[in-house]
Amino acid sequence: MDFDKIKELMDNENQDDLQLPTSLENLKESQMPIAKIRKTMKGEIAIQLAGIVIFFTYPFLIEMYELPRAVYFIFMFITSLMTLGYLAKMIWFLRRTSSVGQQTKETILNFIHDIKLTMEVYKTGIIAGSLLLPVSVTAIFMGAVKFGEDRFTEWFLLQMSTSTLLLVILGYLLSGVVIYYITVKWADKLYGVHVRKLEEILTQMEEV
């Protein structure tokens, strides 16, 4: 009997036993980031939909001048269409990843790829929305009757001095940049940290 060969086979089996739990542990760890991403996304979809309803309801709760009201609804309608576009992408992502429970390296890699694409659509929608939202917010605050004279019409029709116009343009662009920056940081906090965790787990699995 070849005892050396038997010993070699036993050693190989022991090595496999050591590697398998490590891989399984990585798969279990990856379930938590995936579950958190999906849960966060579901919550955000609900909040965004509720926000659209609130934004369209608010003008009926206050008295506004005609032009600010009309501008508000037009810009909010366009912003809502953009929002619904990336919300549809999120819903598609949730349905696509609903069966990700049986995880392998390939499914985790596909999940990472899909969430990154979804986040790019999300950011693109925010860029567009951040350029429209300041107009809607200004219409609400400057076009409300309770604040007195309708200053929004003058602002919207650019009936102002050159220096004031330059300040308005600068403030408009700055508000768009700030909204975009805050949203991107917020998205990274909600999703990016979990994506990076999945990438670390995937790297560990490949090293096993």
Score class of each variant (00 low, 15 high):
1 M>F: 03
3 F>S: 07
4 D>S: 08
4 D>P: 01
5 K>T: 13
5 K>G: 02
5 K>C: 02
6 I>D: 12
7 K>R: 12
7 K>S: 07
13 E>A: 13
15 Q>H: 11
17 D>N: 13
17 D>G: 01
18 L>I: 11
18 L>C: 04
19 Q>R: 13
20 L>N: 09
25 E>G: 10
26 N>C: 13
26 N>S: 13
27 L>V: 12
27 L>A: 06
28 K>H: 14
31 Q>N: 01
32 M>N: 09
36 K>Y: 05
37 I>Q: 02
39 K>I: 11
41 M>H: 00
42 K>F: 04
42 K>I: 15
43 G>P: 06
45 I>Y: 01
46 A>G: 04
47 I>G: 03
49 L>F: 02
50 A>T: 04
52 I>M: 04
52 I>S: 02
53 V>L: 06
53 V>W: 05
60 F>K: 07
61 L>Q: 09
61 L>H: 04
65 Y>H: 06
66 E>K: 14
71 V>R: 01
73 F>W: 01
74 I>R: 05
76 M>L: 10
76 M>I: 09
77 F>Q: 03
77 F>M: 13
79 T>H: 03
81 L>N: 02
82 M>D: 04
83 T>Y: 04
85 G>K: 06
88 A>Q: 03
89 K>N: 14
96 R>H: 13
96 R>L: 14
96 R>T: 13
97 T>K: 09
107 T>E: 10
107 T>R: 10
108 I>P: 06
111 F>N: 01
112 I>K: 03
112 I>Y: 00
115 I>Y: 11
115 I>L: 04
116 K>M: 05
116 K>R: 10
119 M>R: 10
119 M>Q: 15
119 M>P: 02
120 E>I: 07
120 E>Y: 13
122 Y>M: 11
123 K>I: 06
124 T>C: 11
127 I>T: 12
127 I>A: 07
129 G>C: 02
131 L>R: 06
138 T>E: 12
138 T>I: 06
138 T>P: 00
139 A>W: 09
141 F>V: 12
142 M>Y: 12
142 M>D: 06
142 M>C: 09
143 G>I: 06
143 G>M: 01
144 A>Y: 02
146 K>I: 13
154 E>Q: 13
155 W>Y: 08
155 W>H: 14
158 L>G: 07
159 Q>A: 09
164 T>F: 03
173 L>T: 10
173 L>I: 11
174 L>I: 15
176 G>N: 08
180 Y>V: 07
180 Y>N: 05
190 L>N: 06
194 H>I: 04
194 H>W: 09
196 R>W: 11
196 R>L: 13
198 L>C: 08
199 E>V: 09
199 E>A: 06
200 E>V: 10
202 L>P: 01
203 T>A: 14
203 T>F: 08
208 V>H: 08
208 V>D: 04
